[in-house]
Design a protein around this nucleic acid. Sequence first.
DNA 1: TCTTGACTTGGAGTGCACTCTAACTATTAA
DNA 2: TTAATAGTTAGAGTGCACTCCAAGTCAAGA
Lengths: 124, 124
Amino acid sequence: MTIKQVSEIYNISQDTLRYYEKVGMIPTVNRNKSGIRDYTKQDLDWVQTAICMRNAGLPVDVLVEYLKLYQQGDETFKQRLELLKNQYDKLLKQREQINQTLEKLDYKISRYEIAVKTGKLSWD
Amino acid sequence: MTIKQVSEIYNISQDTLRYYEKVGMIPTVNRNKSGIRDYTKQDLDWVQTAICMRNAGLPVDVLVEYLKLYQQGDETFKQRLELLKNQYDKLLKQREQINQTLEKLDYKISRYEIAVKTGKLSWD
DNA sequence: TCTTGACTTGGAGTGCACTCTAACTATTAA
DNA sequence: TTAATAGTTAGAGTGCACTCCAAGTCAAGA
């Protein structure tokens, strides 16, 4: 599968796909005889996971570290587990921040709904 | 209240507080006769809100726009409402991304918990 | 054969959100 | 009186994650 197809499937730029590979966030993709990337099913799994993790805000260097450990083989299960738990905890905290902000916004929004109707913003 | 105190209360650098003010994310803080910031209760409310919003990932320029509308008075209720709703929707989507990633991580973590015990990573 | 278009690379450039620096001023303690 | 401390400003620098660019290669079609 070509980089163009992958970029269309996941709605991500070809530049970003090449960048992810260059920095080591996903494994090196095999090239055909003329040097062009040919993504396999496994490559797509890595791409998908990388995009998912990045969308949630995991830092690139952490994902690079994860791939490095992965490529070092079975000796690194424990380190990989620690890394994943760590990121899990950080995401829980981030979600909590978002929830707090959603609450605040919800409150403000309800006040503005009234303000738009009445022309007055209450208690402020 | 001095910038040092504010920075300690909210655990944010003085530089960042000055930056938020400079770019217009919070209103200008009054200075005493020797030009030193003296944060009022209202200033603190703005600071707290700014930090909350930034922690959830709202962009600086959006918060600047909000303050600008706020300072334009009652004519901008509708625009402020739109802005807030917009950010609310974006945060909902971001939370959804985080939830997806948490699920993925949870799955991986449980596999690695077993892998660490057995020395083998299953089905992969 | 020539051109078009899709790909390749290394490396430079961009946008965001701080973060740091230098030069300066005012207040306080020794 | 002097020195240390805590603040001020404008503006430069940093780190992250892309994003763009230039120069080149290759395969297919006119």
